[in-house]
């Protein structure tokens, strides 16, 4: 696993690396700004779903080593989300903090996206061994539970962006739904723990 880790790291970086290349080749399409913002947003969402797939996948395929990649996937979700936000902040708002703040307050579409990303900030900061030790595993899990509201808000954000054809956000919503339902089912039937107790790892 530690050997393929650098390879996975590079592959995950490709969706970002291709952007300057596309720009150089002039193949970002007639509306390059829309392409850049859309593409980075989608990849953030994809990495959120990949991160959430690690636990089910390692259980189903009995491959616990997958856990070693989860932190990287999560950091990539945050990375693409930050690029997505910065592109929006620059091209749509010219980095005007007042305009961005007003946009967040006025529009549920922006509010959901911004909140979803903001929730990932503490997760990204505490995704180190040092912080895991410092917080203790119970508290660390408690914080990292935030990935669920973050992923839900990201899907809602995408849903609010499309004009009429909801098929694409529907796919992401369905995938997220499966991942969430898997967890609920696992808790009810495998762990036989109560719903509330499993949602709040601290009280376990």
């Amino acid at each position: 696993m530690s050997r393929i880790k650098p390879l996975v790291f590079l592959v995950c970086l490709l969706p970002f690396l291709r952007l300057p290349l596309y720009g150089y080749l002039g193949s970002l399409g007639p509306d390059p700004v829309a392409f850049l913002i859309h593409s980075t947003g989608i990849w953030s969402l994809v990495f959120l779903l990949i991160t959430l797939s690690v636990t089910p996948a390692r259980r189903i395929f009995r491959y616990p080593q997958l856990l070693l990649l989860r932190r990287m996937f999560g950091q990539y979700a945050f990375f693409y989300g930050v690029i997505h936000f910065l592109l929006y902040a620059y091209f749509d708002q010219y980095f005007s903090l007042t305009a961005i703040w007003r946009d967040i307050l006025d529009r549920p579409f922006i509010m959901t996206g911004f909140t979803g990303l903001a929730l990932l900030l503490p997760l990204s900061c505490t995704s180190t061994n040092k912080w895991m030790k410092r917080l203790g595993i119970a508290r660390w899990r408690y914080i990292h539970w935030l990935i669920y509201p973050s992923a839900i808000l990201s899907v809602v954000h995408f849903w609010l962006e499309v004009k009429r054809d909801i098929r694409e956000p529907l796919v992401y919503a369905a995938l997220l739904g499966v991942l969430l339902i898997y967890r609920l089912a696992y808790m009810f039937y495998v762990k036989k723990a109560s719903f509330l107790m499993s949602l709040w790892p601290k009280s376990r």
Partner: peptide, 16 residues
């Protein structure tokens, strides 16, 4: 209701 109409991006330009 979901986005601003105050500005627009002219296709072929990067600015608003």
């Amino acid at each position: 209701p979901r986005w601003s109409q105050a500005t627009e991006r002219r296709i072929g330009e990067w600015g608003l």
